[in-house]
Amino acid sequence: MPTDPAILLEKVTKTFDQQNAVNDLSLEIGAGESVALLGHNGAGKTTLIKLILGLMRPDKGNIRILGEESTSRHRGKNAHGFLGYLPENIAFYNSMSGAETLAFFARLKHHPVSDCARILERVGLAEAAHKRVGHYSKGMRQRLGLAQALLGNPRILMLDEPTTGLDPELRNAFYDIVRELEDSGVTVILSSHALTELEAHTRKIAIMRKGQLIASGTIDDLRRRANLPVHIRLITRPGMGAACAEKIPDGIGCERINDHGLDLTLPSERKIDVLRHLSATVPELDDVDIRLPSLGDLYMHFQKESVVS
């Protein structure tokens, strides 16, 4: 499969009640690439995911999954087998146990039922496997949701806000699993609001607003494009803050926080220059703390930018 991208959207539009939930959106995701989908509530993330899954038909445009036209998928059932999906608000049949639920879905995906115990173990549900799903906590349901998404060795995994309701330990375990899948060539699409988490765990980011893609790329790409200032905090020896402030080169914002602390704001391309300059000319310096624009900063930047334009 060298030529076909895993997911290809061409000028896709989907309208609800005269509102474009997804508006003329084009997106290409290669095999083994993983993308985090960001956007406010109602930006069209879930609609986009449902379109890719074939739960909805686009009003305009084209969607190809693993090289296959989406309209034919509605009746046929080929590409579905390669898709794993974890919905935002996952619901199961409450009267079935976790193991029964997974076995049911495994049969539908032609996945050996004997393998289910291993998957339950992997998501940490081995002990609760025979409890009824109705008695599961939100986190346990979410884990069962991930378990069913892993069935059938999917080539594309769609995770809609997967970590809501998970405790920090589980989140890490969750991202470990996702990372493992990515490494084995699975395309992972993930939507989330937890920006700090995504910053640490994903490779490519796509930001949506009002049904359109306003920015996409790796976090470094986005940083370069946004060209947001870098913040550097300097800690000097006690009482030397003012002396230090005088030695800061021109064109750099400088704010004193106390008698031994300074906050610098500078364009990212001058970062190295300034650091060199500081280490050479300011012997009073005790510590330096560099803060690159976070994904949160970038997110807000692109959202604002798209409002202006």
């Binding site: 046929g76 999906y85 919905p87 996952i90 199961f92 539908l108 995906k109 069913q148």
Partner: peptide, 14 residues
Amino acid sequence: ERGTMLLLLTYPLS
């Protein structure tokens, strides 16, 4: 209404 159909429809069945 309960939300289980959404998941079921993403499975390989018509």
